[in-house]
Design a protein around this nucleic acid. Structure first.
Lengths: 342, 342
DNA sequence: CTGTTAGCGCGTTCAG
DNA sequence: CTGAACGCGCTAACAG
């Protein structure tokens, strides 16, 4: 097939005009049922498929959402994409993916690619590298609304969908306290990322609420990786007064800590408690099973799409007042932190 | 900003024509360096960003690749997407994602969405539900080349990128034999999927090569899920002559089997060996660590993009002769199958 | 209910 | 080296 069939072809075949055929296929109310029927039949017969490009150029709407994530390799983002994409497709939107690979430069390139593609909206989760966020303002200038998810930035007046990180951290820490752990440490993430900062704050507040003095020595400035989890344990166990439990900022860090603790022969959870954050898939299958705080990833994706979809439908969508959606963190207390229960 | 700046705006600003500006920005050889420079400066000054939609409509090329996967929730596909997307973006292509959710109907919808979006090429992994593949021929009729990866179909004369599943299965089974296991079972996947069928064949061939009689009772017709792994163990251990090792078609099935075996108090690997396929991320962290066969997922994604990119550049790309790329399976023998080693 | 006209923004002729 | 003119395929506005 050399030339793809167009509205023109259908119109000629039926002695109609392209405009009428267009309206018929778009189920326009002012077209007779009879015409619609015959047009649809002919479209199928000629294997017609609407040229979305031409349609977008004319109408100014692409029905495309750009999704910018740090990396598709992390289960967390795969899961969010799953939520976004399914809902988007159901609503007639295509989803284009761009990865920042945790680099600020790539993030800018991604946003520019989205602007160039004239996406109707952008969903993004910031890279660890990102401090300056002016590229998102550039999207706004190009009239494209943005919704951030998970890794957000509060300086910007941009809509967002997050889990309540503060509360999640509070619940995790409180759980360790209630399980009888006495000196609870925290392996923290980069503090310029709001989510990670909130988790530190939640940890501190839980200690305070239970009249435990906060000891800054018990906070290890780590990152979301296996290695930093191990390094965190190494640091903490060498303290004059080492902890007997750890709340880690994220599951990979928690896993690293778990492995390191096991290797050092510490009994978990009898001698040492550990809980992570994210409820990554593997947590259920480690031994002992890793406690964690679930972030409702699929729902986060769905909510992000719902929000951007809502915003798109406003006039002057890019300047729609910032809306913050916050999801409940769901604790999964498994064996790694549970002395009482199994 | 109400109206986005166009070539026209730049042209007016510089007393040039849109044609010249277009050529300057596309680095056309017949444009003077001086003009190029001033045009580029003005483009930046006016915050110009090329309208890819208009460009695509005119040129007939979208620089978009459509990627169809069963679900982004599986680490395997997340990893492949990672490979595809990074390479695609580096080469100036956008990637649009569609999930079949393992349903034939959604797969068709996805292909139609891709045709409508006039993607330059399609990368796809078949849903478990898919037997009839005529929708891929439809893509061909619309002049869009297709490359399948991992879950392919040999009936169709379509290019593909896969791992050598036969060899991987052979290596896995042989490893169990060499570790001294005597009755080796197989938890199989749906046999209409070529990859899973090849794994069964590889398993059988390895037995044959080592003069072990194939016993059909030792093949459990399962699926790639935790539940089917457990069910497989349940079936196999109730046989009159139960096995002492399992090669599972995939890691989740292997994990299910592992859990069920542990729950029944069997010592792994001393009393029972187990190995999976896929080398999913969690395998390294179970206890005992799960042996598996790595499919080189990121490289698979990269190779898939390279292949489609190559094909796109041919004339009559859609009818380019089918090319099959096969990657080497890489064994990761961990504790779950290794009596000798730790 | 349907036809006519026009134009979205770009790239590609063909001239000069 | 640059300008003028056209058209990719579709839809919106205005007629009738």
């Amino acid at each position: 097939m050399k030339r793809r069939t167009t509205l023109q072809d259908i119109a000629l075949d039926l002695n109609l005009t392209p405009a009428t055929v267009s309206r018929a296929l778009n189920n326009h109310p002012e077209i007779s049922e009879k015409t619609k029927k015959i047009v649809e039949e002919t479209a199928v017969r000629l294997n017609y498929n609407r040229n979305k490009i031409a349609s977008s150029l004319r109408s100014g709407k692409t029905y495309v959402i750009g999704v910018l994530i740090p990396t598709a390799e992390r289960a967390f983002f795969g899961s969010v994409i799953h939520g976004i994409t399914n809902l988007a497709n159901e609503n007639g939107y295509d989803v284009i993916i761009y990865q920042s690979n945790e680099k600020h430069d790539y993030e800018i390139k991604g946003i520019n690619a989205f602007i160039s593609a004239r996406v109707d909206g952008i969903l993004a989760s910031l890279s660890k590298d990102t401090i300056d966020c002016s590229h998102f303002l550039n999207a706004k200038e190009h009239d494209i609304p943005v919704v951030l998810f998970d890794r957000v930035n509060n300086d910007l007046d941009i809509s967002s969908v997050t889990v309540n990180d503060f509360k999640g951290a509070y619940l995790a820490t409180e759980h360790l306290i209630k399980q009888g752990f006495k000196r609870i440490a925290h392996i923290a993430g980069p503090q310029h990322i709001k989510a990670f900062n909130d988790r530190l704050k939640g940890y501190m507040r839980a200690l305070q609420a239970h009249h435990i003095k906060f000891d800054p020595l018990l906070v290890y400035a780590g990152d979301i990786s296996l290695e930093e989890g191990k390094a965190g344990v190494d640091y903490l166990l060498n303290l004059p007064a080492p902890p007997d439990a750890i709340f880690a900022v994220e599951d990979f860090a928690a896993l690293g800590a778990l492995k390191e603790l096991k290797q050092r022969g510490l009994q978990i959870p009898e001698a040492f408690g550990i809980i992570g954050f994210c409820n990554d898939l593997f947590g259920e299958h480690t031994s002992p099973a890793l406690s964690s705080i679930d972030q409702q990833t699929v729902i986060m994706g769905q909510e992000a799409f719902k929000l951007i979809h809502h915003i798109i439908q406003q006039d002057d969508a890019a300047n729609f007042p910032a809306t913050k959606v916050e999801l409940e963190p769901i604790p999964f207390f498994r064996k790694s932190s549970s002395r009482a229960v199994v």
